[in-house]
């Protein structure tokens, strides 16, 4: 199903949002902030984190202050209108084995079969098949108006979205093929799904975010927005920058206190310019930035959520 050009929904209105980017750019914070914003917009929301180790600690979900004792492969309540879940290869495998064998006992037996288990976890692509299957399964619940997925670092995120084409070529039929085909339809539907690429104001992360944009475009996954995260405020005038630059250069053997922060700021300013310059020709793309937020996690998330609403990446709060 193709939508009419020019009337693509904004990223704030698409039901499935994938948050991606290089490691350490703040994907988890952005995912959590999107979840909070959606919750405040009174949308029934699911925030999901992809993990290779189920039952390991969850960097995303533990921020809601809940001590999780149960498995997180089924959605758990994080607050009003907000659920959280961990998506993992083995949880996905269990789901499709249950569907394949129909009898739960048999599925559990198959899952316990170490041969099958090892095969599914060790054979290439099968972990991603599990992840995608679980994502489609959650989508099919039709329980959520907005699903936000915190994707793993760049390379693997691309692998995940490239997967459906490979799988549909190799796997001719069966319920996994059906689910993966549906997954491909959802991922490439510009009205249903969009990615947000998060990056930092540093040269390399900026370059890589545009490479990722290119990669996603090639596999037909819509990029809804590029987000320059943690952009520091520039406090210097051009004159001041020059004078300071010269002063620091003449004090090579000793570090002037503040000079490293000064260089960091200069670096961020240059990266920011490169970011907007490269984004300018990409007309359909929203390119926005968030400032640096300090403080404890909850206040950072709330501030980031407000920032995302302001930049149009999330819907505003709905009244009482």
């Amino acid at each position: 199903m193709r939508c009419v050009r020019g009337v693509t929904r904004s990223i704030a209105e698409r039901p499935l949002v994938l948050v991606t980017g290089k490691g350490g750019v703040g994907k988890t914070t952005v995912s959590a902030a999107l979840a909070i914003a959606a919750q405040e917009a009174r949308q029934k929301t699911l925030v999901a984190e992809i993990t290779s180790d189920p039952l390991a600690t969850s960097p995303l979900l533990t921020h809601w202050g809940t001590q999780f004792t149960q498995r997180l492969d089924q959605p758990v309540t994080l607050g009003a209108n907000l659920d959280g879940v961990q998506i993992s290869p083995s949880a996905g495998h269990r789901l499709f084995l249950r569907a394949a064998l129909r009898v739960g006992v048999l599925a559990d037996a198959a899952m316990r079969s170490s041969a099958l288990n090892r095969f599914l976890l060790a054979a290439p692509a099968f972990p991603e098949i599990g992840v995608l299957y679980q994502l489609v399964w959650l989508w099919r619940l039709k329980k959520y108006e907005r699903i936000i997925v915190d994707l793993p670092a760049t390379g693997h995120a691309l692998g995940l979205v490239k997967l459906p084409r490979t799988v549909t070529r190799v796997v001719p039929k069966g319920l996994v093929k059906d689910a993966i085909t549906e997954g491909l339809e959802i991922l490439t539907n510009r009205d249903q799904c969009g990615t947000i690429i998060v990056t930092l104001p540093e040269r390399l992360p900026v370059t890589e975010s545009f490479e990722l944009h290119q990669g996603l475009q090639e596999v037909g996954v819509s990029v809804g927005a590029l987000l320059l995260n943690r952009m520091p405020e520039d406090v210097f005038s051009a004159g001041e920058r020059e004078v300071l630059g010269q002063y620091i250069a003449t004090h090579q053997d000793e570090l002037l206190l503040g000079s490293r922060e000064f260089r960091r700021l200069g670096q961020a300013t240059r990266a920011r310019a490169a970011f907007y310059q490269q984004a300018a020709p990409l007309l359909e793309l929203k390119s926005v930035e968030l400032p640096v937020f300090d403080g404890e996690w909850r206040s950072v998330i709330n501030a980031a959520a407000q920032g995302l609403v302001k930049t149009g990446l999330a819907l505003g709060p709905r009244g009482q």
Binding site: A122, A123, P124, A125, F126, P127, E128, G155, H156, L158, G159, K162, L163, T166, R169, V170
Partner: peptide
């Protein structure tokens, strides 16, 4: 198909 797969491999 193996060659197209990132993870695991």
């Amino acid at each position: 198909a193996l060659g197209e797969v990132v993870s695991g491999l």
